[in-house]
Design a protein around this nucleic acid. Structure first.
Lengths: 199, 199
DNA sequence: GATAATACAAAACGAATGTTCAGTATAAAT
DNA sequence: ATTTATACTGAACATTCGTTTTGTATTATC
């Protein structure tokens, strides 16, 4: 049980890579299984052997992306000391990640479409929850340490997540340089809005 | 040229109303022309006689919605004196409008879909530009009058627009009461972030 | 009253696309 | 060596849906 399993994993990877490229270029809906077939040389049946469905294939890619993001962050986290700096650091990583990661638009499209299987919906909910929880912990830490004024951390976490979502959408039409500035300003406003002051 | 034109307008309205209800409940993509046919009693051909396409029908509804929003705002604008208060007022109207207006989700879905006719895309771009310009004028006024710190008004306008978009998405899963709080907090943070202070 | 325009109906088109399934070959297991 | 499980093929399936087209009845125009 070796040669076959290896070959299998290689094929799965090849499909995932091709799908990622296509989803990135054309978006989720506009990318057909047929195109993935043409890009990989694999057959339709084979793709459905490795992945449960088109949605499943896409979520597989998003999961990988998420994991990669967390890995990158953990490497960089120690570079920042205060929670405030960490937030800026996260912001910047998200900015770079979002702008460099062409899957963003497809993900945005995917999450906004109403027709998802109920099992898929659950996975999405969990993913969003993970993000918000990630934000919440950081914000709570900032509040506890007196950096931010004591507000509802859970709510601020949701707002932060929403801010990124909104910025992603707004920067769709703008050039990359402007998008970078836009994101940065948004974080600036947000931080400025929750920062603790003596006034 | 009277009885016929009247009847025609009534039919168009009936179709528009039914479509609005359906798009609101089920989203853009999930609502089929066939369902609009069933809901109105009109035929497919008739719908296509009154509206150029499904996209055209949807944009017609969005346009109406936008016009109604502006009308409402102009009625209320005089109630607020400072730009800061106006922003809060706008925020609240958007909140109420968005939460009460079930078309929001469908619009969000529609704007995120990649497959639109090029003429449709133009109309969307214009609409977004109008919104941003609306925001920009207000923010610029606030800056000129010293209420807000002098930042790039254009960029802040885009950020504000994005914030609403993001909040709309984030509040999709939450209950109405929580959504109201969320929106309000977000505006709070934003205003707090751009407010002018003596520090 | 004849002609033209308008409002509407009903059916067919047509094309894209996700998914399944019967069948085959290659490998592992016994 | 035979059986079994796994990886894969390719075609058919199954629908869904937006759009077009052809035909008709009613109303306006002259």
């Amino acid at each position: 049980m070796n040669k076959k399993k290896l070959q299998s994993e290689q094929t799965k990877r090849k499909v995932a890579d091709a799908a990622k490229a296509l989803f990135s270029q054309k978006g989720y809906k506009a990318t057909s299984i047929e195109e993935i077939v043409e890009a990989t040389g694999s057959s339709k049946g084979n793709i459905y052997y490795h992945f449960k469905s088109k949605e499943g294939l896409f979520l597989y890619l998003i999961d990988e992306w998420d994991l990669e993001w967390e890995r990158n962050w953990k490497e960089r986290e120690s570079l920042y000391k205060t929670t405030r700096d960490k937030l800026f650091g996260i912001a910047e990583q998200i900015i770079l990640d979002d702008l460099n990661h062409p899957l963003t638009k497809a993900a945005d499209e995917f999450f906004n479409n109403e027709e998802k299987g109920s099992d898929i919906e659950e996975r999405i909910d969990e993913m969003v929850k993970r993000h918000v929880e990630f934000n919440r912990e950081l914000l709570q830490k900032g509040i506890d340490e007196g950096e931010f004024s004591p507000k509802n951390a859970e709510q601020l976490a949701v707002i932060l997540e929403g801010l990124f979502v909104g910025m992603s959408r707004m920067s769709r039409k703008t050039k990359t340089e402007n998008a970078l500035q836009l994101y940065h300003s948004a974080i600036d406003v947000f931080l400025n809005g929750i920062i603790a002051r003596s006034s």
